[in-house]
Design a protein around this nucleic acid. Structure first.
Lengths: 337, 337
DNA sequence: ACCGGTTGCGCAACCGGTTGCATTTTTATG
DNA sequence: CATAAAAATGCAACCGGTTGCGCAACCGGT
């Protein structure tokens, strides 16, 4: 049977004082005498009093909750991001409400409403694959709820945004392959509905053009899941002129690439080089360890949350112009190139 | 500038009716005429009305939030669990507040208070490594807040508990190694403060005893992190009589095992067999794929949440005795044995 | 004894939605 | 047309903590 928790009213009654005094005593308000404060604190302690944050959050519209919407909390990238977010959120004494969109537009809209309904003070989000209409995000902005996008951002909205410098990063990766004397470099782009996929593809093209290597559309694979990637890469490897290097734009695609490579019994890096945007515990799982461009999951989450809190703490927050933060991800040598 | 969101009072004023009527109309209460309902719904829609769940949650003590405390949301296991939890929580129209203990006792206590303060309706938790005192959990039980433990459970508390049948699972794993004619089987147990570590070790011993293989304490490595494991396994492999098989009790220890094995340039499974409790995307990342005992992360999260909701939905919940659910995890063949 | 200032505390409204009960309006029936 | 019954709506309290304002008690100084 549920025991009703102790409230300031219970304390007030036992002490024969008013609940306002109890409230102020607990918050160490200067108006209250030390004797009263001591009595209140002592009783509160002994009764295991836990202030009802729902009640106070209701009163002053401060729930101390940050909402997070991610496509999925699996694989490596998003858990890393969550770690980075948590670090800041916890330091600030806030809590995190995590919702998943499952790559569905409908659930994204629904989740946004849930966060609004729960009076979260700010939102962090990485958009779903399916999303092509951004009115729901615009509505969040309209009601003045601070929102920061990371990784999968939305163009054209007046918000802060954090992402890695995809173009440069991808360019670095491909240049590294070219340095290793690779000529037929394939790329596995993720879903082309995402800006990051386009950017990374652009970096790939830039590197090739600068090296005066012509772009072969056959070497550009648009694949989403590990399975799709494995299939596409296998097909490519079976062609008469297979690639001598593969650039995978994410952990997911890299998984598929590596499977295809292993199934073909190709040796890395002797027979084929691979490089990609891969998170730490993932890259060192392979042998040789993968040469990677760091996706900076932790840092992205960390930075995005910092930007969000800057807005929350900026009392006259209309003064802050939307910021676009590019984190530059450096190349980390493994042995796969 | 923050725009104050529309409330039922706004709707009531515009329609010249009382807020109680609006409230009832929105909830499709039979007392309200269809005409009024239509008018209210239409206006609510056009004003983008989002009910304030903090307010209603405050009123009727139903926040529709489930609290989750995990040590960390990284690696494979906990994200899988979260997926399983989310599936049920979302289906029930609830939200998840995820807090991390970072393996710290203090943060665990703090997190529990945060969840109580936020009026969560139920709690799911996997305890921190550091925790040896369980009064904070007892307090949760005392105030009648339903709590279900999973994976890393607490013995001796009157709560529901979900875990895999570690003893049997570990036993299966080791038997599989014995079938493959392995004689010197090492085990990497995790932190021995955890029940699962003890159970899996026990399963290991049971299998050996049944096969009449004597237990060599040198083959029992107690190691926590991938790094520790790598170090310990490397040392073991360098001994005059190295093991011919290794059983790793988790993804983390397996990571270390595989690194040590690769560094020694040992071939799996020719030179050495490996087997472990490993999550799906992880096991198929290696070549050959790992033979594993499934840790059932998704299923554990799913089941734990179902138990929790059974309690929430059981109006006279004192009738339910604490349940202990063992999920039996079967062996999944890879090529590593 | 009187006064201005300080200290400590209580009163009551408020946040937004919910709900038991009273009240008004409509409908049906004699 | 009166009246009882049913349908639709309003009133007001409530949830627990916060806060502006008012007021009494007390202080030291004259």
């Amino acid at each position: 049977m549920k025991v009703s928790p102790v409230t300031i009213i219970d304390i007030a009654k036992k002490l024969g004082i008013s609940k306002s005094t109890v409230s102020r005593a607990l918050k160490n308000h200067p108006d209250i005498s030390q004797a009263t404060k001591d009595a209140v604190n002592k009783l509160a302690e002994s009764l295991n009093y836990v202030p009802n944050t729902v009640a106070s959050g209701f009163r002053n519209k401060k729930t101390k909750i940050i909402g997070l919407i991610v496509p999925q909390i699996s694989y490596f990238f998003f858990p890393s991001v969550v770690q980075g977010i948590e670090a800041v959120v916890h330091k600030k004494g806030y809590k995190l409400m995590i919702l998943q969109s499952d790559e569905s537009y409908e659930r994204e809209v629904e989740n946004l409403n849930v966060l609004i309904a729960n009076n979260v003070e700010g939102i962090l989000s990485s958009v779903s694959l399916e999303t092509r209409n951004f009115e729901h995000f615009q509505h969040v902005i309209d009601i003045g709820l601070p929102i920061v996008f990371f990784d999968r951002i939305v163009k054209g909205l007046d918000t802060d945004v954090v992402l890695v410098d995809d173009v440069t990063g991808a360019c670095k990766a491909v240049k590294r392959l070219i340095e290793a004397d690779r000529k037929r470099i394939a790329i596995c782009t993720g879903n082309m509905n995402l800006l990051i996929s386009n950017n990374r593809l652009q970096g790939y093209k830039t590197a090739l053009i600068q090296a005066e290597i012509s772009i072969d559309e056959d070497l550009i694979l648009s694949c989403d899941t590990p399975e799709e990637t494995e299939y596409a890469v296998t097909a490519l490897l079976n062609k008469p002129t297979p690639p001598d290097a593969i650039f995978a734009i994410s952990d997911l695609t890299m998984t598929g690439v590596m499977k295809a490579v292993f199934n073909k019994k190709l040796k890395v890096p002797e027979d084929i080089s691979v490089i990609g945007f891969c998170e730490e515990p993932f890259r060192s799982m392979y042998h040789p360890q993968l040469t990677t461009i760091e996706p900076m999951g932790f840092e992205i989450g960390h930075k995005a949350t910092e930007l969000l809190f800057e807005r929350l703490e900026d009392t006259n927050n209309w003064s802050l112009a939307p910021r676009v933060i590019y984190l530059d991800s450096h190349l980390k040598e493994g042995g796969s190139v």
